[in-house]
Design a protein around this nucleic acid. Structure first.
Lengths: 232, 232
DNA sequence: GAATTTCATGATGTGTACAACACCAGTGAT
DNA sequence: ATCACTGGTGTTGTACACATCATGAAATTC
């Protein structure tokens, strides 16, 4: 009996290439940083991570180097590898660029959604409805990541997707931190997000990918404004 | 008597931190790829590069990993590290994104040029005039890189700069390859570029950074169209 | 008692040997 | 003659020992 392996087990699996193992570790650590399992300023030990993932420091160092290029950690010789702090002012530029780039997804190589895609999105909307009723900020963030990755499929422009993914994971921590510090009205945030999902769902069914992009853009912009408001 | 050290000598210098050495090697290898010293498909030997830069494979591997993330090389286990080929169709998406992002530099955190900046730009225009008269495609490309990096200073938005730099170095090889294959009228290309520089110079002196961005955008777009035309 | 020095500790960065892998030439059987 | 196999060679990937550096506590000196 074979069951889908967990992330940790997958690393021990033998059917994976080097690139796959690297991607898995990168995703996992990035996820932990964005879900605030690793808080800003926290020191990541290469040795500890190596032991956890059942490998040596060398592959871990490669992953951390990539995360450093992406702005999520920073290494200091003799000190350690520290999670960068999600400072509002420093990330304002990232947020504004994200807003503009999101609008662009509708114009640059849009991918018309097929039936399978719309069905998958319907599933997401259902999942979201459950979170509205009883969900934690953490579960919501994980959900938000899934929605983001799904919506990314609507653009065939690879460099645009790659760039947006970077920016997304750089800014995502801001929202979650504000939410956990009770600066945001969680219930209201959930409802707004659900409304956005339904609007996107509607646009998808009419095949209007550009409208989807504009809805996203508007909501990212408004979310940023709410953050800005509460941060002061 | 102290003179500015060359790239190779700088690596032997002792006053440099780890990060500086990494940046130097990264810049140097990136430059070689974009100036077609390393042709697409060519195999880069980690051992040879390590010896040349007077270090071991370990730091070289980190540089190559970054270049792989940037899409300039690709490593294959047991085969080698190959320079990616500058395929026109594959880079079309990059080009189009670059066009849009360049226009954005005028809107997102523009930096008003001061007298020192304008003076430096005047120097560039003079250098360009010399290339128009008697210049190789290679010298022109090197000049183009300098102009690009100078114009980047007009945006304070760091993530935007970082992204544009990536895209720029991904696409730059296309032009040079087309030029060396005599698909482009070099003299005409030089003149067009010089006209662009003068237009930008004019916009700079009136302090209109957004106009600078639009001039750039127009020329990148037109340059791409000329490439597309000649490639078929 | 306070400032300074020393040194133990633990972190990242580097060098190197070896493992895993792909490619190719040569060899043999069919 | 052709195909399959096998070993040699060179490459990237990994593990580990060591160098280098920053930090803080303890010892020492004034």
């Amino acid at each position: 009996m074979t069951q889908p392996p967990s992330t940790q087990e997958a690393l021990a699996d033998e059917g994976l290439t080097v690139r796959d193992r690297h991607a898995l570790m990168h995703h996992e650590i990035r996820q932990r940083i964005c879900l605030l399992d690793y808080l800003p300023g926290m020191r990541l030990s290469e040795a500890a991570l190596a032991e956890e993932f059942g490998t040596s420091r060398t592959p871990i160092r490669r992953v951390l180097a990539r995360l450093e290029d992406e702005g999520l950690v920073q290494s200091f010789h003799g000190v350690g590898t520290l999670v960068t702090d999600a400072d509002f002012d420093a990330l304002e530029q990232v947020y504004r660029l994200r807003v503009e780039l999101t609008a662009m997804t509708g114009r640059l190589d849009p991918v018309p959604p097929d039936f399978g895609y719309i069905a998958r999105f319907d599933q997401l909307v259902l999942r979201g409805a459950a979170i509205v009723q009883s969900g934690t900020a953490r579960a919501f963030t994980q959900f938000d990541i899934d929605v983001f990755l799904t919506l990314q499929e609507l653009t065939a422009n690879q460099p645009l997707r790659q760039t947006l993914e970077r920016l997304y994971f750089q800014t995502k921590r801001l929202w979650l931190r504000a939410a956990e510090e009770a600066q945001l009205d969680l219930e209201e945030e959930f409802k707004i997000f659900q409304h956005q999902l339904e609007a996107i769902q509607c646009a998808l069914k009419s095949g209007d990918v550009e409208a989807v992009a504009h809805i996203q853009r508007a909501h990212i912009s408004m979310s940023f404004n709410r953050l800005q408001q509460k941060a002061r």
